[in-house]
């Protein structure tokens, strides 16, 4: 057993030394070196190919890992920038709305109070907004509520720190109004379906046509004269009926209102010129 062990070692050593000798001696042993190369070259070629394949696979794997990690980092960056972009856009829009609101407040010939919407009621029974201004701020019932685009509604209920604003399209809402072009008087009423209509007396000379602007009439003491209410989109001709109805597109999209002005003062002046069509 021990002899076999050392015989093996000796054989291996002699083989190695033979290989070395063949390679280091010039001239004669070239044939032996060629024989070694003949036996080794296919193995070497195989190893080289496998080596190349393994290297390619390894580089593909490391590249893939790098690309994957870069991809993840870029996705995270993209997500963060998208959120930042949304925040900036939101801030810009809020800034624009507030600038318009403040400009309108400065132009108004009567006292106003700014308010922020903190709640909405949009069911068919009632349509209202909750404003963060209440009794403590001097808000009273029936105060008109406006935005740069026009009339939002009126204060229906006042609480200590908030007020409920009845919207124009509330089924119980009625506002005295006129057609700005023809001065045809009528009433703007909310509908259960969420629309707004202008009810007017169908007599010669009424001449209401789609596109006409309806503004508050200023009759009574509730709303100042000239606040935009909506624009006529269609006329419902009832034939010989005493009243006709004009379907209105409200001047204000109540669903998008976020800040409002509450008119705390009174004015008999026509303020239609203070409002701009784009709000």
């Amino acid at each position: 057993m021990r002899f076999r062990r050392y015989a093996l070692l000796l054989a291996v050593l002699l083989t190695s030394l033979f290989l070395l000798t063949v390679q280091t001696r010039g001239g004669g042993p070239t044939r032996a070196a060629d024989l070694v190369a003949l036996a080794i070259t296919p193995v070497q070629s195989l190893l080289a190919n496998a080596h190349r394949g393994a290297l390619t696979a390894w580089h593909t794997f490391t590249d893939w890992k790098t690309v994957q990690s870069e991809n993840m980092a870029l996705r995270a960056d993209n997500e963060r920038l998208r959120v930042q972009s949304l925040q900036v856009r939101e801030t810009d829009q809020e800034n624009l709305r507030l600038r318009r609101l403040l400009a309108l407040r400065d132009r108004m010939p009567l006292a106003t109070l700014t308010g922020e919407i903190i709640g909405r009621e949009g069911g068919g029974w009632a349509r209202s907004l909750t404003v963060n201004r209440g009794r403590a701020d001097g808000v009273a019932q029936q105060m008109p509520v406006i935005v740069p685009a026009g009339l939002v509604g009126r204060v229906a209920q006042v609480r200590s720190g908030a007020s409920i604003v009845q919207l124009l399209n509330d089924p119980a809402s009625t506002v005295g109004a006129v057609v700005q072009r023809t001065r045809t008087p009528g009433l703007v009423e909310g509908e259960p379906g969420g629309g707004v209509r202008f009810k007017f007396m169908a007599r010669d000379g009424a001449g209401v046509v789609p596109g006409d602007l309806i503004v508050t009439s200023g009759l009574g003491t509730l709303f100042p004269k000239g606040i935009p209410v909506g624009r006529v989109t269609a006329i419902e001709d009832k034939g010989s009926a005493l009243f006709h109805f004009a379907v209105l597109a409200p001047a204000v999209d109540a669903a998008r209102v976020e800040e409002v002005l509450l008119l705390t003062g009174q004015s008999t002046q026509d303020i239609a010129g203070l409002f701009t069509p784009d709000g």
Partner: peptide, 11 residues
């Protein structure tokens, strides 16, 4: 050189 590492590693 063929045999150097073969020899050292065999040992």
């Amino acid at each position: 050189l063929l045999g150097v590492q073969a020899l050292s590693r065999a040992l």
